[in-house]
Structures are given as C-alpha cells and as structure tokens.
Design a protein around this nucleic acid. Structure first.
Lengths: 342, 342
DNA sequence: GCGAAAGATGTAAGCGCTTACACGAAGCGA
DNA sequence: TCGCTTCGTGTAAGCGCTTACATCTTTCGC
C-alpha cells in the first residue's frame, strides 16, 4: 500500500496543460471538448492512473449514480435471479447496484433501507409493500424514488413492478381443488410483515370459496423461512390435521422442506399427500417428485424494474403499477386426491 | 418527493445555537461534548430530521465506512451464507457492505472490483486468488486493504481467510478410492480463472497418485456453473467414459446436475454410479440420494474474514493467512464400487 | 469584411462535512 | 494567589469535484 496521495483532477489538469473544468468535461461529456484537447487529457489521465474521488463527485454533482435494493434474503435464488437482471440493466445505464438483505426481519429492513439512503442511494428497489409509515415518510421526505417489486396492489398508490400474489395462488388452488382435494392446508411464511404471503394465502381462501368451501377453516401454519423449518412445520401440520390431502406452501423453499418432511414421515408424494410451492426456483424441477408451483418471471421483473426506476430517476415521474403474468407449473408433486376414481 | 433542500449541519448548528464543529463532534465522538450541549444538539437533529450527506462526509473524512465484496454469483447459497455472516460482523462495527457479482466472468469481476473502489470502498473481500496482475497493482496503488477468501495458498503472500481446496478434495477422494472406485472422473467448473476448482482437481490427482494410479488419466469435464450444465456434462461424460463408477464434482450445484443426469439416464446412484460434491449447500442434504460432499465453514469464514479485514483497516496491518478446517460429509450419493464384495 | 452566433476553454464559487488550531474558562498544586 | 494543565467550544481551512458564467476564438451570413 503506497501512501503517496492519489492523483486529483488538478494533477491531471496541470499535466495536460488545461483547467480542471476541461478535465471534468472530458470525463463527463466528452463531446463538449475538442478532440485534440481530449486526447491530451485522456493521456494524462491514463498516465497518472487517475480515478475520480467518489465523495467529491457525489458532493458536487448531488447524485451518486447508485441504486439500492433490499431483499429478504440472498439465500433464495429467486431474489438473486431478479437482482442479477436488475443489476445488468442498471449497469447498462452507468448505475451501480447496492444490495442489502434483511433476513426477513422488519426492523433490520428498516435499518438497511436507511443505511442505503445514508450511503447516497439515488433510488431504491424494495420487495413487497409492508413497512412502517415512518419509513415511507422518510423516503418521501428525502425524495428518493422507490419502486416496489414482487407485489402489485390496486389499493397502493406507490410505483410497483410485480405480480398479483393472490390471483396467482388462486389459480394454483383451483387446480388443486379440481383434482378433488377438499382437505387443504397451507404452510406459510410469517404473515404479519409479508404482504406477498398474505396475498397468497388469501388466494387459497378465495379458491375455497369458489368451490363452496368455508374459507376460514383453512389451516395455516406459519414458520420462518428455511428448508428445515418447512420440514418441521410439515410434520406438525400432518400431526394436527391427519386428514390433509394437499399442502400448499407459499414458497418453494418451504415446499422443499415439506417434501423432505413427507419423505421422513414415510408419506409418498403425491400418492399420500400433494405438495405445491411458489416461485419456481431451479431446484423445484430437480426435487423428487418435481414440484408443482407458480412460475414468477424473476428476470423479466428485474429488468423492467430497473427500466422503470431509471425513468423515474431521469424524468422525476412517479412510476406506474405493473402486474406481470405468472404461470402455473404442473408437475409431479401434485396429484389427484388419494382414493379418487381414476 | 418534496423538493425543499435537506437540512445540513449548519442548519442544526444554528438551531442548537452552537457551531458546526460541535454538531459534528456530537455525532462522531459524543464524549468530547458536554452533556447539556449534546442534548440540545441531538434535539435539533431529531427535530430537523437531519442525516449527514454521504458525499461530504466521505470527502472530508477520507473514508466511507464501506467494505466491498465481489462474489462469483448470488445464485449459490454458499456465497450468500458467507456474505451474510460477513455483513453482520461488519454491521456490528458500523461498516456497510457493498456486494457485486461477477457471474464467474473474469473481465466482469475486474470491472466490478474497480467499480467498488470507485464507489469508495475502504476495503475489499474477494473470492479466490485468480485475477490479473494489473488489478492487484491497481489495488495496491490505491491502498485498498484486500482479503482473499475461499482459498488459502502457502505460495501467495496476500492475506487470506479460506481453506485448503486441494487438501479437502484429496481427503474426499481418498474415501472414494477406499470404496474401491478406480474409474473416477471429474466434473469441474472452468479451470482457467478459478484456482479453487484447480486446487480441488489437483486434490483428486494427488489421491490417485497415493493409490498408485496415474493421475493424468483423470478425465476432467469443464462446464460453466449451473444445474443444467451439470446435467449435460454428466451425460457427455458417461457417454465418453462408460466405465466410470464415480464422478467427483467440484461443487454441489454441478453435483446436483449430475444427479439429475443420472436419473434421466436411468442410472441409480450410488448403485450404478457414485456422485460427490463440494460446499455442502443446504439442498445437498435434500437431494435424492443425499449428496456426499465437503462441508465448508461458510459462516465462520465470513465472520472471521470480516474481523480480519476490520483489523487490517484499523491497524493498517497486512493481515494473516488462515486456513479453516473443512469436513467430509459422507452421505448416500457415494457407495462402494458396483459389483464389489460386500 | 463586419457583426453576431456558436464553440472551446478558463475562472471560481460552492457542495456539506471534518478537524487542526485557537481561545477562554475552570480546576489544580504549590 | 499564580501559572499550568485540562476541557469545551468556536474558527476557518480545506477535502476534490461540478458547473454557471466569463472570456476568447472561430465560423458564417450577407
């Protein structure tokens, strides 16, 4: 680590025999400088190994070209996928992505969002709507354009690039019901701070109602995110409700856990019990049996989210509310109700 | 989005009837200010909703309290895990983590590292050693403390918090050989820019040599990261080397792909062919059959990496070279060679 | 060939914060 | 009581960059 100070704009300017303004222009809007000068400046830049000081640049330009995103967890490939596409699109427009994760913890999420803003994020991508009024007020006050993803609600004014969680799950639940299942249970993430999970559970209830079943008798087991927790919750569920023929999980990870729980309990899927997921992560296909789930267009969502946020940033507009289509993936983990006539 | 400018230090100072220096001290070293003044200042801070301007702070303090990390991919839970622990430890010391991913692309990694430095990262966490001399020179010139993780080589001077890839794989390969396998093949990530994969392959070769087998006849199939690619490579491999009884993969994701390839080919694991992985990601346990693999202490590694980097940053020291122990996880995907006496 | 418009570059005023140094007040030992 | 240290606070000089504005040159219509 050499201690001699790094070259500054002034050093470059001196070396190239121009003013600092010209060097700055060469770097930021090259077409405003005549070619000969530009060449000379660029040569000096290269020779000195000059790179702009981030803090100074941010201070003077009043923007950081940085977009922040807070996701529930990096451990779920589904978020990683979406973010990758998001990042690529941002990169194409000269912006950098800052990622933080909240471990599905509301207080931590709050903190991470504030940290990102404190770090100068020009705009934010958030997952779902659920967060405190104070936080939203803070964001509005600071004038940070914010886009919600993974959800899309008619009743929320805020810009969103997501999909309809309720409707997607409703469609899947219809398929389950069509196969004759009448004793359905739900394995869910904690509902209190997760509007996506709530929407999905609501979707099951709506489907139940459509089929003339009482929606409020749906057993819902809430458990933190994880394969292990899914396995444990599955076991608790079948113990408490032995007659259950189909377990609908609000995400694939939980469903994978349920699959393992079934295996450990000696239950055959789907002969003894059916299991469904949500997200369509890569391993859903690989599971034994392959998981019936709802496919979410992660990549497309990420890319479009980036575009919308970029537009909001550029034009200062409010952003729209877009619901992307999802797709039911019928696979081996869902079968007809046991004992049904074939 | 309100347009009225955000409050500055000067606003707070005026409101509290003190100088900006005092406000700054209240925020950064509260014990240097008498309690009464401090209370008054803090009240003003709260009332105004003041938050420091990142750029200005970075410019004046010449540090950003930000640490950058570049990982190959966010889609592998193994990196996510390690990073989470890394981030937590940093957070405890008031630092923020900036993450970027390179998609296992050397040029992109180079770019991301420079972007992170340009964004003012005070220190860096990198995965593995393999990168250009220019990049390392750049880092040294800028004086950015850098810590390598996931690898730990005797021959590299640079600070590292990792484990011995070669030795770990060597140990696993011994187990494979002990079970009678003599026709082993290797499914690897591209080796040219991945010292971890190279070390692991080398480990297999070393084990072969120990058992008196010619190390250079080991078939090594290189394929990009992914479950799908693992499946395809598996098929290509068994076609070209039908006599293979054990396939050792350099990571779990590839191994999962191999498992699927085996299933699609109608091969029973481990009866017809054995498969091993590396990393011990959560799904390794869930695979059918559960994957024999090498457990890497992700969380511990992440946490200790953070501590070391923090020390380097604080004391300006060079950092040490630490190799953490790994553990062989014997599970169902590895069995005795087919036709062996039981 | 002249004046105006357009283009290239320079000048210098900040951006909001940290911190070395200065200053006055209070506490202390002799 | 006097000089010395210690403590709390203020003053003001940057940190390295962007950019409005000023200045000087060139170009071009007529």
């Amino acid at each position: 680590m050499s201690d001699h100070a790094l070259p500054t704009l002034a050093d470059v300017a001196q070396k190239a025999g121009v003013s600092t303004a010209t060097v700055s222009r060469c770097l930021n809007s090259p077409d405003r400088v005549v070619e000969e000068t530009r060449k000379r400046v660029m040569a000096a830049v290269r020779e000195l190994g000059y790179a702009p000081n981030f803090g100074a640049q941010a201070l003077a330009a009043k923007q950081t070209n940085t977009v922040g995103a807070v996701i529930p967890t990096m451990e779920n490939a589904v978020f990683a996928r979406g973010l990758q596409a998001f990042q690529q699109e941002l990169g194409r427009h000269g912006k950098t992505l800052l990622v933080a994760s909240s471990s599905y913890d509301a207080a931590l999420e709050d903190e991470q969002i504030r940290a990102l803003v404190a770090r100068g994020a020009d705009a934010l991508l958030l997952i779902g709507y659920d967060r405190s009024r104070e936080l939203y007020e803070f964001l509005d006050k600071r004038g940070v354009p914010t886009l919600v993803s993974w959800s899309c609600s008619e009743t929320e004014a805020r810009a969103a690039m997501g999909f309809d969680n309720r409707l997607s799950m409703l469609r899947l639940a219809r398929e389950v019901l069509k196969l004759g299942h009448r004793h359905i249970a739900c394995l869910s993430a904690p509902l209190s701070t997760n509007d996506r999970a709530r929407g999905r559970v609501q979707g099951i209830r709506n489907a139940l109602a459509e089929f003339g079943l009482p929606p409020n008798t749906l057993p819902v087991f809430e458990t933190p995110y994880g394969i292990d927790t899914g396995t444990a919750a599955f076991k608790a569920l079948v113990e408490k409700h032995p007659g259950t023929t189909a377990i609908m999980c609000v995400n694939d990870v939980l469903a994978l856990g349920a699959l393992r729980g079934a295996r450990e309990r000696g239950l055959s899927v789907p002969n003894d019990i059916s299991v469904t997921g949500f997200d369509d992560i890569e391993i859903a296909l690989l599971a034994e049996p392959p998981l019936t789930t709802v496919h979410v267009p992660h990549r497309d969502m990420g890319q479009r989210a980036a575009r919308m946020l970029l537009d909001m940033l550029r034009d200062g507009t409010k952003g729209a509310r877009v619901a992307l289509p999802t797709e039911i993936m019928m696979r081996g983990s869902l079968g007809p109700v046991p004992g049904a006539p074939r």
